[in-house]
Amino acid sequence: MKYAFFPGCTAPFRTYGYEVSTRLVAKQLDIELMSMEGSNCCGFAVRPIDKLSSIVLAARNFCLAEKMALDICVICNGCYENFIVARNGLLTDPKLRREVNDILSEIDMEFTESVEIKHFARILFEEVGISKIKESVVSPLEGLRVAVHYGCHVLKPSYELGFSDWENPRWLDQLVEVTGAKSMPYVDKMACCGGPIMGSAMDLATNMIRDKLIKIKSVNVDAIVTICPFCALQFDLTQLGAEKKFNETYRIPLFHYPQLLGIAQGLDPFDLGFFENRVNVSTALEKVGIIF
């Protein structure tokens, strides 16, 4: 299995533990992640201002992957949604496609439909499969209780992304449970973390994550698991901001999903970048017999 690896902007610059654990877990499962030299922002960041620019930026990345003759593997829900919406637009709107290709011809590129977009977590679930992942687990995380947060843009809009189970999905819970950990149900599990408005309305984003944290805390979990660097920043970094703002204590560690899988595969938590996580993870790791 081989993919053009598109880590996006946030993971390589803000959540180092997510990128490094993704790479290590991929290696364990024989997934080759090839660098996309020269790639740019997925386009999500400029979409509110100019849709054409966001599609052109996305399309240039598709062309780079096409040169590598590989599908794209993303690890950010924002990149995932923006890439798929852009690709769908190019496939269904001939006028848009002509316009974008005219711009891309400036750099000798042309959008074709050959490249598909996959999220790393979906690759694990669909391509690798639960049974093969199970074989890779050497130290099951028995007794670890986690709160799963999918993140909106890996599920919705379902009519663009092609999922029917956006309201009550199970696949990420299954990916968690194959490690031996238990996915605990909690109120408003599918609610947005507030990540997309961290820039434009930080106060509101903080209030939103506080609400999720209080609901998660009430079911007594050891960690929160995410598959998006933006959601992760909300749960990890903004958690500290919310503690300060409301003078409350949550202290719920955030695990990037590949970190969770990585420890179950017996990888060294230091190599998995756990020390980069902001909320202290040692109590959670102790629970599964790891001194960190």
Partner: peptide
Amino acid sequence: REDVSLPPALSVDMDEVSKILNRTGI
């Protein structure tokens, strides 16, 4: 990134990106 044994962040080909963004008029 070096702390977690990651390679340096990839460079963006700004020559190409500027060319296409000039055309969109952003």
